[in-house]
């Protein structure tokens, strides 16, 4: 098997995540989809690391994880505070910016 299959897998997972962001309305699920996209890119980075024989890709994947953790913390806090005020976790309900 050619290791390039890992890249195909990453592409597939990324696409599924992107489609999820567009389709799901629940803010939590939407966030999970974003996490899936990040994971897919991490997989690609790890594969690139193997491709080039250096550890830089893994370091970048590591940083991605850290940033993802930070993002999740803030994002979930936002979801909770929105839920508190609007009693809904649906992103479609937060459309006050519309004219």
């Amino acid at each position: 098997m050619n290791p390039v299959n890992y890249l195909y897998l990453a592409a597939l997972l990324f696409t599924i995540g992107a489609a999820g962001v567009l389709v799901r309305r629940n803010a939590i699920v939407l966030f999970m989809c974003v996490e899936l996209m990040l994971n897919a890119s991490n997989l690609a980075l790890v594969t690139f690391s193997r491709l080039h024989g250096t550890l830089d890709g893994q370091v970048i994947a590591f940083f991605t994880m850290v940033v993802a953790a930070a993002e999740v913390v803030v994002g979930l806090a936002i979801i909770v505070s929105i839920f508190r005020t609007r009693h809904s976790a649906s992103v479609d309900d937060s459309n006050l910016m519309k004219l």
Partner: peptide, 8 residues
């Protein structure tokens, strides 16, 4: 109309 306010 494009600005419908829906994040998605």
């Amino acid at each position: 109309r494009i600005q419908n306010g829906f994040v998605r």
